[in-house]
Design a protein around this nucleic acid. Structure first.
Length: 586
RNA sequence: GCGCCCGUAGUUCAGCUGGAUAGAAUAUCGGUCUCCGACACCGAAGGUCACAGGUUCGAAUCCUGUCGGGCGCGCCA
């Protein structure tokens, strides 16, 4: 509908310019808005006010010209000029009612479009280090990223969902070493566990399975493990040095092959858990991209060479630095440490370089907001290598704060007392979790009320929307029980009988759905869809309370049932994009 | 100290990227089932859009400053 009006205005402007009646610059885009007040018609356009200056005309005068040049349209019943120069469109009722048939005919495809033209977009999200189970912070990134990806796919982009697996690097070494130390403990050694080690119960579990399958094969006396190791923090030492020395000792005592075996058990166990967790959450990926593969394929060295060749790398104090300040970063960044180890940032540069090499026209990263400081340096690296940094969109997701019984749930990664995504899903269910996570703009700090999310009451927006869907299904069941029939084709022929204001409002809401999906996708704002669905559900409940659907007049009955079935379909489609189920009864 | 995000009804949040009288939900108060599911509906009340300037036909929205909250500023990942 909006697109249709844009066409009309655009044609009118072309006509005026061609005839010389108007001399002005072309507008960047023609904005058609839904009016807030129905006395202003159904849609309004502000183009006359925007062009007034360059056309050197008064807005209202310009509006007159445009309206005079508008081509005929069967969908428009009246056009008015109002206020400072708004062009208000009143649509004919028939322009809206055709949507009912469209929804029923297209079914699950209604709302989908080819707007994206098959352009390849990569969406990378979650990408949590496989050093432990996902927690509720990752959950928001998962729900948000999955929904953004699904929305983009719905409007015609070819979407590649990807999880970057940090299976190389120091944190993973710390995990592997933690597993080994717990294993030694299970072997009967007395092990003072490092402050910087991973202390979660899952590390014990992995160590236990290592011990179960290998007996004492990896056992070394505690004395040998800790001989000449610098003291840990409680003993007055540096916890970072302490853990690094323990990692080196593990590699030395175990040898490369055994160390890798312990390391991989930890990695694979946790990664399998993460994959299962996400799958149960309705989050699927096209690819799990391994950092280790990236390193082993030589991509990291290649990226550093490219920076070097471009003259943006220098050596200082034994380390290799990338001059990111030349591209707007706050300070230069190390890519190779003085001990020869490449930094995480180095693989990140290589990873993003490689993403663009794969030919994606858009690359979207969903990051936790605590990583916002990394945006300038990654973009700087792309610029330095001669890539186009504007192809990369980094979407920052704020953390959610959980509330239970009105009290803030305390979480601390340090003490290991974080709430896992799995615990959240078990407590409130997948549907509520998916919905609540995307109910707010991603850059908004969010309060997640656990009690509300699990309450099966009107207060809970998930149940409210799902109930609207179930309610339509229930009416259709009643239809059969009462021995009445429903003829969809006849219903579509009698849509003109739907003259009640509730019916008109519902029909107009249906016409908005494709616009909402499009806007939500392009602006990466799933909350727009969530809010829309709530309004649509409200429209249905209101209608239900005001009118009887199963009336004796078969024409009217068919028309009403066609309408509510169309509403049911749109609720189903919308919830499905959000990863939420649409039950037939509750 | 510097940088990024945020500040809208008692509370949680929208506000279609600068438009017409700032909207929902929730909480509070008052109504509605002999009726397709009351897991619902209707109504009332609730605001100096943090504050102060500026930009223009027009600002919650854009620019500057102040105040308040969150996060980030490693040869960690």
């Amino acid at each position: 509908m909006k697109h249709h009006l844009q066409q009309l205005i655009s044609t009118a402007l072309d006509t005026l310019r061609a005839s010389g009646a108007l001399d002005c610059t072309a507008p960047d885009s023609i904005v058609i808005e839904h009016t807030r007040d129905k006395s202003h018609g159904d849609f309004a356009c502000n183009v006359a006010m925007l062009l007034a200056k360059s056309a050197k005309r008064k807005p209202r005068e310009l509006a007159e010209l445009i309206v005079g040049a508008l081509p005929e349209s069967g969908k428009v019943s009246k056009v008015e000029i109002a206020g400072p120069g708004f062009i208000n469109f009143f649509m004919s009722p028939a322009a809206f009612t055709t949507v009912v048939g469209e929804v029923l005919e297209r079914g699950e495809a209604f709302g989908r479009s080819t707007l994206g033209n098959g352009k390849r977009v990569q969406v990378e999200f979650v990408s949590a280090n496989p050093t432990g189970p996902l927690h509720v912070g990752h959950g928001r990134g998962a729900a948000y990223g999955a929904t953004v990806a699904d929305l983009l796919a719905a409007v015609g982009f070819q979407v590649h969902r990807e999880y970057y697996v940090n299976d190389a690097g120091r944190q993973m070494d710390i995990l592997g070493t933690s597993v080994w130390l717990r294993y030694l403990d299970l072997c009967g050694e007395t092990i003072p566990f490092p402050v910087n080690g991973y202390k979660g119960d899952y590390v014990w579990d992995i160590a236990a399975s290592l011990h179960r399958e290998n007996g004492d094969a990896f056992r070394h006396p505690a004395a040998a493990v800790f001989q000449d190791i610098s003291p840990d923090e409680p003993a007055g030492g540096d916890k970072e040095i302490h853990i690094d020395e323990l990692i080196a000792r593990a590699k030395e005592l175990l040898g490369a092959a055994s160390y890798r075996q312990v390391f991989d058990l930890g990695l694979n166990t946790i990664l399998a858990d993460i994959k299962q967790d996400l799958e149960e959450f309705g989050v699927a990926y096209e690819e799990w991209y391994s950092e280790r593969t990236l390193v082993e394929s030589g991509k990291v060295d290649e990226a550093i060479k490219r920076l070097q060749a471009a003259g943006h790398v220098y050596e200082q104090e034994g380390a290799l630095w990338f001059r990111s300040t030349a591209f707007g970063d706050e300070k230069d960044r190390v890519v190779v440490r003085d001990n020869g180890v490449k930094t995480y940032f180095a693989s990140d540069i290589a990873y993003h370089m490689e993403k663009l090499e794969r030919g994606f026209e858009r690359v979207i990263d969903v990051w936790g907001a605590d990583h916002h400081g990394y945006v300038p340096r990654v973009k700087a690296a792309l610029t330095a290598m001669g890539d186009d940094p504007s192809k990369l969109d980094v979407l920052l997701v704020q953390f959610a704060i959980l509330y239970r019984g009105g009290e803030r749930v305390q979480m601390s990664t340090r003490s290991g007392s974080f709430v896992t995504l799995r615990e959240l899903r078990d407590e409130v269910g997948n549907d509520a979790a998916r919905f609540f996570y995307v109910l707010r703009k991603c850059e908004q700090h969010m309060d997640f009320d656990l009690d509300l999310a699990k309450s099966q009451s009107a207060d809970n927006p998930v149940y409210y929307i799902q109930y609207a869907h179930a309610r339509v299904c229930s009416v259709m069941r009643q239809l059969g029980e009462k021995g009445l029939s429903y003829d969809q084709a006849a219903g579509l022929k009698h849509l003109h009988l739907l003259t009640e204001s509730h019916e008109q409002e519902l029909i107009q809401a249906l016409t908005r759905y494709p616009e909402v999906v499009e806007a939500a996708a392009l602006s990466h704002e799933p909350h727009q869809l969530a809010h829309y669905l709530r309004e649509l559900a409200n429209g249905l409940h209101t209608y239900y309370n005001a009118h009887q659907f199963l009336v004796d007049d078969s024409g009217l009955r068919d028309a009403r049932l066609a309408l509510i079935n169309a509403v049911r379909q749109v609720i189903h489609n919308g919830l499905s994009l959000l990863g939420v189920s649409a039950p037939e009864s509750m």
